[in-house]
Structure formats: structure tokens, C-alpha cells
Simulated scan of single mutants.
Amino acid sequence: MAGRAIRTVTVRGVTFGEGTPKVIAPLTGGSPEQLRSQVDALLDVRPDAAEWRVDHFAPLTDTAAVTATARELTDRLAGLPLLFTCRTRAEGGRADLDDEAYGELTTAVVRSGHVDLVDVEYRRASEVVRRIVEAAHEQGVPVVASNHDFSGTPSRDEIVARLREMQDVGADICKIAVMPHSAADVLTLLDATRTMREEYADRPLITMAMGGLGLVSRLAGRVFGSAATFGMVGTASAPGQIDVAELRSVLEVLDRAV
């Protein structure tokens, strides 16, 4: 689509910000054994990247266990990029961590060198966000700044403002997910994506409306400027995710048309 020049992000040969939206599949196992099983299933369908939702991991507060598991996952994924995400309850996840604990865990994993991208909830304490971003960039790890609104859909201008704030904190990819309560809410999210992409973005965006109502945003994001989408392999990590194979088939149809 038309818009500003985008500074793409490439990890392990996968480039975000050009071509067909990349498909990211979550890993949500609570134990290393469950994660191994999920990785094996994921490799059968080969998404473009995997997201480790560490907030589902039982030893979440054991940093050594988390970093060791990140290393095992990276090895087992055999070249597939790994996005590390600790989603807190405030943004729809399971982790009960204060800002400092969240920052310490995320920074430690980034510095371990065992992840390819890191998700940062950009509305955490500004100093914590700054430390994570600096540590990630020191390691050459791109940052996905994120915001999740499970209560509703902000206005178009507010969505754009949040995405611009993510650029300002140094994110390499800016992500927002909202909860629609009407078709108009889905249109708001898509129009905000278009506005951001055409007028302000200089790096890739990932946007989506969650739930069944918002499914169209996961399928047609490329038309409006979204660079990636999330699909499931067995277990969803957010409302509205569909199977990776089904998702790919729709993306391929749209790819031929755009």
C-alpha cells in the first residue's frame, strides 16, 4: 500500500515490513515438556516466527529456568525466529509482575542471547521500558512495543497516538490490539492502521481487533498496513486467532490480489 518509507526488520531471514504479512504462532506450554511438544507441532506447519508466551510458563519467576528454556526453544526451532513475550494481567496475560520484576526478567532473557525479538509493554514504567530497549539494542534484538486494550477500542486518533509513542520509545516494530464491540470498532482499528502507515510510520506495524468480530483485521491487515498476524497451532494465545494453515491460505489469496 502507499505510505512512508519503512525501515524493515529482518531476523533469521524473515523480513517484517515488506511483502505478505508474516505469520507468528504462539507457544503457551506451562512446562518444558509441553513446549517441546508445541514446537514439534509448530514446525510441521512452518509459520514465519514463533512467540514464546512465557507468562504461561510455570517457573516464570525462575530467571535461570526461563533463560535455559529460551535457549532450548531457539535450538529446537531450527532457525525459526523466536519472539519473547511476557504478557501481564493488565494487558490480557497471566503474569503478576511489578514493573521492576518485569524489567529484570525481560532484560535478563534479552542479554542471554537466546531470543530473536522481544515484546515490551510500552506503558510500563518509562525507566523500565528504557532499560529493556537499550539492553535489546545492545544485543541486536529488535523490540516489539505493544499495547493491548481488552476493554474496548480507542478512537482512531488515540490508536495513532499510542503507535507514535511506541516509535518515540525506540521500538523497531509497533503493535496494538483492541477489543471491538461493533463493526464500527473494527473499522476504527483498520482506519487507524491506514492513517499511521500513510502519515507517520517509519517502521513496521502490527495491529488487530481481537475476537471473532475482529477476525477480518487479522486476515486483511496488509491492505491497511499491518506487517504481521498471529495464528494458532492447537492453542490460541488471544481471542480470535485461527489455525495457521487456514490463515496462510487466506493471506495467499489476498497476496495475489494486492
Rank of each mutant, 00 (worst) to 15 (best):
G3F: 07
G3C: 07
A5Q: 11
A5W: 06
V9S: 05
R12S: 14
V14Y: 03
T15K: 09
T15Y: 11
G17D: 10
T20Q: 14
P21T: 10
K22M: 08
I24M: 05
P26Q: 05
P26D: 07
L27R: 01
E33W: 00
E33F: 00
E33V: 02
L35H: 00
Q38K: 01
L43C: 03
V45S: 04
R46I: 11
R46S: 13
H56W: 13
L60N: 08
T61F: 03
D62H: 08
T63D: 11
A64F: 07
V66G: 05
A70I: 09
T74F: 00
T74Q: 14
L77T: 10
L77N: 07
T85C: 09
C86A: 12
T88S: 14
E91Y: 05
G92H: 05
G93C: 06
D96L: 13
D96R: 13
D98S: 07
D99N: 13
A101C: 06
Y102T: 11
Y102M: 03
G103C: 03
G103K: 02
T106I: 13
T107E: 15
V109I: 15
V109W: 00
V110L: 12
S112H: 02
G113M: 04
D116Q: 07
D116C: 07
V118R: 03
V118D: 08
E121M: 10
R123C: 10
S126I: 11
V128P: 11
R130E: 15
R130N: 13
R131E: 15
V133I: 13
A135G: 10
H137S: 09
G140D: 10
V141E: 05
V141M: 08
V143Q: 01
A145P: 06
S146L: 03
S146N: 05
D149P: 05
S155Y: 04
I159K: 00
A161S: 15
L163F: 09
L163M: 15
E165M: 10
G170R: 03
G170A: 06
G170Y: 04
K175S: 06
I176N: 02
V178D: 01
P180H: 04
P180V: 03
P180L: 07
P180G: 02
A184F: 04
D185Y: 00
L190Y: 02
M196V: 14
E198A: 14
E199I: 09
A201W: 10
A201P: 12
D202I: 15
R203M: 12
P204M: 03
A209K: 00
G212W: 00
L215G: 11
S217F: 01
R218V: 07
R218D: 01
L219Y: 01
G221H: 05
S226Y: 07
T229P: 03
G231E: 02
G234D: 06
A236I: 11
A236Y: 02
S237R: 03
S237W: 05
P239T: 08
D243K: 00
D243C: 09
D243E: 15
V244P: 03
V244N: 04
V244F: 02
E246N: 13
E246A: 14
E246I: 11
L247Y: 06
E252G: 14
V253N: 09
L254M: 13
D255Y: 12
A257C: 12
A257I: 15
V258K: 01
